[in-house]
Every structure is written in C-alpha cells, then in structure tokens.
Amino acid sequence: MEQAFNRQRINMISWLSYFFTGALVSTLGIVIGPVSQAFGKDPGFIGQMFTLMNIGLFLPIMVSGVLMRKFNPGKQLITGSAVSVLACIALFLMPTITMFGIGVFLIGASSGIMMSIGSYLVVRINEDPKKRSANLILTDFFFALAGVVLSLLLGYLFQHGASWLAMYGVMAVLSLAMIVLCVGQTFPSIPQAAQTTMATETEVTRWGMSVWVLCFALFAFLLAEPIFTMWLPSWLKSHFGMAADRAAFYITTYWTVKSIGLFVNQFTVRFVKLRTYLLLSAFVGLMCLAVAANSADPMLILVCAGFFGFCNSGLFSGIMSYGSLQVSNSPPTLTSALLTLGTLGTLIFSTLSSLVYSRYGLFWALNSATVAYVFLLLALIFAAVNSKAEALEQQPAR
C-alpha cells in the first residue's frame, strides 16, 4: 500500500532541488571572473576546473535509478546536502585552488542527487500527461528563478568587492534549507515493477527511436544554454567594455524572462500540443540566440537574450515530458535515461567551450552555443516526425 505523503512538501523539495542546481549552473559566467582573479588563472583554465563540478553533477544522475531503488530519497537528499554544507565550510577555511576543485566537485554531486530525485518526484506524483508537463515546467521555473536572484545578488556583490566565496555561502544556506525540508518527510515509494531487471530490459527495448533522439535533444539543450550564460558576460565585458554588474544584468534579463515564461507556459501546454510548442520554441529560440551571439548592438543583444530566455523556458521540462510520453506507464528508468544522457551536455559544456575559447577565442566559445542549438532543433524535428506520444494518447485507458 502507498504510504501517505505531503504532496505540497514534496513539491517544495523538488522546487528547491531545481533552485539549488540553477544557482550552481546559471551563475558560472558571473563567478568565473572573480575566481580567475582570486587565483591568478586564465578564465579558460577556471572554466575547465568547473568540469569537476559537472562531473560531480553527472555521476549521481547516471546511477540515480539504482540509488533510488536501494536508498530512501530523503536520506539521499539529507546526506548530499550535508556534504555540500561541509564542502562550503572547507572552502571558507582553506580557499586554495586544490580545495576549490574538490569543493565544486562535492557541491556538484549534491546538486546531481537533488536534481535526479526532484525530477522523478514530479513525474511520480503527476500521472496525468498535461499535469505532468505543467508541473515539470513549474519546477523548472525555480531553476530560472535561481538564475535571476543569484545573478542580481552576485553581480552587485562582486561589483562592490565581495569575494568569490559569497557564492558558496549561498549554496551552504540552500543546502541547510533542503535538510530542514527533508527531515521527517515521507517520500513516494518506487513501483515494484521497475525494480526487476527483466521488466526493465523489456521496457528499454520498447522505447523506440524517438526517446533516444529526445535524449540527444536534451543533451544539445543542456550544452547550449550554459555555454551562452557562461560566456556572454565575458563577451560583453571584452567586446563592449561593460562593467561587471551591467554585463551580469544581461544574464539576469535572460533568467528573469525565462522564469516569467516558465510561469506562463505551465498553462500554455494545457492548451497547445506539446509537439507544436517544442518545435516553435526551438525555432524562434535559435533565431534569437544567433542574433544575440553575433550582433554589434548591445541593446539588440539584450532584447534577444530576453526572447531567448522565453523560448527556452519550457524546453527542458517539455522535452522531458515528451520523452516520458513516448511510452505508456513511463518507468523511472526512462526518466533516469533522459536526465542522464541529457546531463552529458552539462558535463562537457565548460570543458568544450573553454577549449574553443583557448583555441579560437571568445567569439567562437559563445557561438558554440549556436551550433549546439541547431542540433537541438534538428533532433526535435526528427523526434516529432517519429513520435509515438500522440498515438498512445488516443488509446483508451486499460
């Protein structure tokens, strides 16, 4: 029998898990400058150091299906959050380049635990396809909200001489908040059918090509977006001579408009076909990204960054939802596969773009986001043409 659990508190845990990850990932473009200055290193080198954070983020997501079957989600969240708090304290006590690498790896691992469990919880407690899409978008709203809040806060603090450690003080506070939410909370159980190897293998063989193409689409999205937010401030400061707080305002605008779009689009997907929504958003988003990364007009870049944020607002959660709808009674392994393969983009974005920066310069580091977004649009077109979701929706419930 399913244990009773507090849905509102489960939702809050999911929202905080995405807020935490958003705070960690969306602010790299703002943090990279102060960290580079503190350690006397090139931004390209620090960008590659952040790969350790991305590896830490990726590893728990990769094994999340196994972890959730063996360990209580609440215990995982509390343990990961405690490790994050200790890592932040260690950074304050020993602010060296070595401890920085270890610290961001451990904080990234905590983020990976939060994001994988947060994503599954939303899918688990929302069986209706439209409600699932809407709630995934609402959860993703908190990822964008973190980008708004932290971009404003850190841009102001760094402009007024704050240490890079301010960022990790914030992460420690968020980790403590997660511990408080999880203590005493009952979590939904994992369905028994998902725990047998034979059943899992059967499910995997029936997923179809569209699922794997949507995994690639998530990969391309999670490659393009963080590259854009990571290198745009550096491009604005270098090419237009902007102050740090003004360059940070462009990223704040991106996340502000994205958060507005996420709030609006949780209702949009209830009335517009998800396939149409994804294709239109990706097409317009590509146009905005291309202009923002190549324009010589700062005001036009700001406008396009905002529109790009709106177009991106429902893509991550929309692709997650569309992937889960390719299979009837979507299993946890499908959510885990989408998130794992998609997060490969998060894993490599800083390394890949930093290598491009070192070899070809800042312009192409930024435009590697445009290239990735082209692949995202192509993948969505292919998946839409070969989708099973619409046919499954027409089938009568058994």
Score class of each variant (00 low, 15 high):
Ala199Gln: 15
Ala199Leu: 12
Ala199Trp: 14
Ala199Cys: 08
Glu201Gln: 12
Glu201Asn: 11
Thr202Gly: 10
Glu203Pro: 10
Glu203Lys: 15
Glu203Asp: 15
Glu203Ala: 14
Thr205Ile: 11
Thr205Ala: 14
Arg206Cys: 02
Arg206Thr: 07
Trp207Thr: 01
Trp207Asp: 02
Gly208Cys: 05
Gly208Ala: 01
Gly208Asp: 08
Met209Asn: 04
Met209His: 06
Ser210Arg: 10
Ser210Cys: 06
Val211Ala: 04
Val211Phe: 11
Trp212Asn: 07
Trp212Ala: 00
Leu214Gln: 05
Leu214Glu: 02
Leu214Tyr: 09
Cys215Ile: 09
Phe216Gln: 05
Phe216Trp: 14
Ala217Glu: 07
Leu218Val: 08
Leu218Glu: 02
Leu218Ile: 12
Phe219Thr: 04
Phe219Glu: 04
Ala220Trp: 13
Phe221Asn: 12
Phe221Met: 11
Phe221Asp: 02
Leu222Trp: 07
Leu223Asn: 00
Leu223Ile: 02
Leu223Gly: 00
Leu223Tyr: 05
Glu225Ser: 06
Pro226Asp: 01
Ile227Asp: 00
Phe228Lys: 01
Phe228Cys: 01
Phe228His: 01
Phe228Thr: 04
Phe228Ile: 03
Phe228Arg: 00
Thr229His: 07
Met230Arg: 08
Met230Asp: 06
Met230Phe: 10
Trp231Asp: 02
Leu232Pro: 05
Leu232Asn: 10
Leu232Tyr: 08
Leu232Ala: 07
Leu232Lys: 04
Leu232Asp: 06
Leu232Cys: 08
